[in-house]
Design a protein around this nucleic acid. Structure first.
Lengths: 344, 344
DNA sequence: TTGTATGCGTTATCAT
DNA sequence: ATGATAACGCATACAA
């Protein structure tokens, strides 16, 4: 296995010069050329462990996510990868299951592996970022906002909740419930706020027993809808993320034998014509229905663009690397226009 | 930031002793106790970069996957994580897009980051594993079999192709096409072999123009089905992986306005009752329909257990770590029994 | 500009 | 069993 000393002796220069060539410092072009051919010839690749030790920072960034099985977050990961790779960084995915203990374990790993930076969708409002930040590592919070002076990218979640609810109001629904995520996430809380505000503005009742905090997974949506239908009267429901939406639809399918009827019980053109065996229920979902196999026009989706969220977060991190002193920035990520064509 | 020397001086011992305590070597219990309290007090955590450099191997394993957006592979990742974490290893996900260039780049990173091992679902029949293996790193090939003397775990793909096809034959279908993945993957090739054999055994024609090699993503299945329906007569189709299945169903939905009719054109109980506007087409899918929102009894699924595949692969890697000399083993991963209840 | 020599933090070797 | 010290491979301060 070729080492930097091998390259140096082969090229007839010092290891310092080899290092300089490899790191783009000023070097006599002739020497540089000799070094490069030696590198090529010997198949030399720097040992990144040694480099990290010496530089006190590696070229790996951690992407800490609550659920890598959620297509929303894998899309975020793709966006992050695109720009990070381009800039020479490797991305490693870390899965927290929205568990603060796992999260803080991964943050500790990132710290002691001397990773260059961390992108995180935090499981709580107070992730343990101090150690990383005092050691000068880049930190970007994404998707979920926290109350801290740190670089952040997130959607306008209150507006999303409001829009999802308005879509249903516009369709003629009047008693609209809401299934949202854990209180520990700003997305869940703010989207529910939006639901509350949209109802209030329309002069409709927003009773707190029509709001359910579930987890942000399929089983969360499934159980929540069952609970909701047993407790309260409603004619529609807002699901504040994609997997909760899937769970809600599965629960409806189980109850009614059909995904989603129209509000008045009359099938919509292009929609399913299966008989309705239970009360009609409109469904609004913030996000996409991943891997859906048919276009269901009677479900009201508010598609997001997680990949762009990822690229925006990665850019923020790169800017932070370039200028560690720059004041923290909180970016609001745009979402596709309401009438934009669906990507799937 | 506390270093090992700080702990040593605080505890009044040498750094060697601290290191020994932390690595479970034999040490005077009294000294060990002093060291441990110092570690606690100073909040000392070893620098993993330095440790890796010295040990010439880190405690990180790479999981190299063709498509992290495929729920099959994220489930594999969960399985791998479960057992790797338990054994003290961190798992990093690497995405190749089935691109040999990206794949070999990640393998090179794994090598030069001195990672402990690599688990890989290879993009080609000949991934570049020599460098890693000669350096004594653990290597396990998963999901896709290669012709090499290396630890492997995969399903019996020929049997899967055969079973998926038989399911359709049993339902009364007679002209069964097949959409499979790239020729560069054993899964695609062997499952297609199974399709061919099942038809032959049933005395049905298996014409090669009824076989399409697509990519293993949704667009692959979508385009392939369009192509197929334009070219050949058939009454059913086998999709050899989950995403291809999704693509096939989307193409059918676009053509017929309904996911999947029954073979004789009569809706099945519990199935969709929408009018059929085109020829009936049966669908068999090797794998699951991820995040499906209703139970469609007229699609014939052959569910797999990717999470178990991941745990099996991780166990193989741990065994390899424990005994580097052990001969390579090729494990055939069981699949759920045909009549097992669906997990979703 | 180039080379020499030191240090990053840990583990392993070699004495004791 | 324990301590002093060299070494892992690279990047950089300093000297030239």
């Amino acid at each position: 296995m070729a080492r930097i000393v091998d390259v140096a002796s082969h090229a007839g220069v010092s290891t310092a010069t080899v290092s300089r060539v490899l790191n783009g410092k000023d070097v006599n072009p002739e020497l540089a050329a000799r070094v490069r051919t030696s590198v090529e010839l010997l198949g030399y690749v720097p040992d990144r462990t040694a480099r990290s030790l010496r530089r006190r920072a590696s070229d790996v960034v951690a992407l800490v996510l609550p659920d890598v099985e959620n297509p929303f977050f894998t899309a975020v990961a793709r966006g992050v990868e695109d720009v990070a790779q381009e800039a020479g960084y490797s991305v490693v995915l870390c899965n927290t299951d929205d568990d603060p203990a796992k999260e803080s374990r991964y943050l500790s790993v990132a710290e002691h592996e001397n990773m260059a930076g961390v992108l995180i969708a935090p499981a709580t409002h107070t992730p343990t970022l101090e150690a990383l930040r005092t050691r000068g590592r880049g930190v970007v919070v994404l998707d979920r906002h926290i109350d801290d002076d740190v670089d952040q990218v997130a959607f306008d979640n209150e507006a999303l909740g409001r829009r999802a609810t308005s879509m249903l109001i516009d369709q003629g629904f009047r008693r609209i419930a809401c299934v949202t995520g854990p209180r520990s996430t700003s997305t869940a809380v703010e989207r529910a706020d939006g639901w509350r505000h949209a109802l209030a503005e329309a002069g409709l009742p927003a009773e707190e027993d029509q709001l359910v905090h579930a987890n942000f997974r399929v089983d969360g949506g499934y159980d929540a809808l069952g609970d909701l239908l047993d407790r309260v009267e409603c004619d529609a429901v807002v699901a504040t993320n994609n997997l909760v939406g899937v769970g809600v639809l599965r629960a409806l399918a189980d109850r009614h034998g059909v995904p989603v009827p129209a509000p008045d019980g009359v099938p919509r053109p292009g929609g399913s014509a299966a008989p309705i065996t239970g009360p009609a229920l409109g469904v609004g979902i913030i996000g996409d229905l991943p891997f859906a196999t048919s276009r269901t026009t009677d479900i009201h989706l508010l598609p997001l663009n997680p990949r762009d969220l990822g690229t925006a977060a990665a850019h923020l991190l790169l800017e932070r690397f370039a200028d560690p002193q720059r004041p923290a920035r909180a970016v609001v990520q745009d979402v596709p226009a309401p009438d934009a064509p669906l990507s799937r």
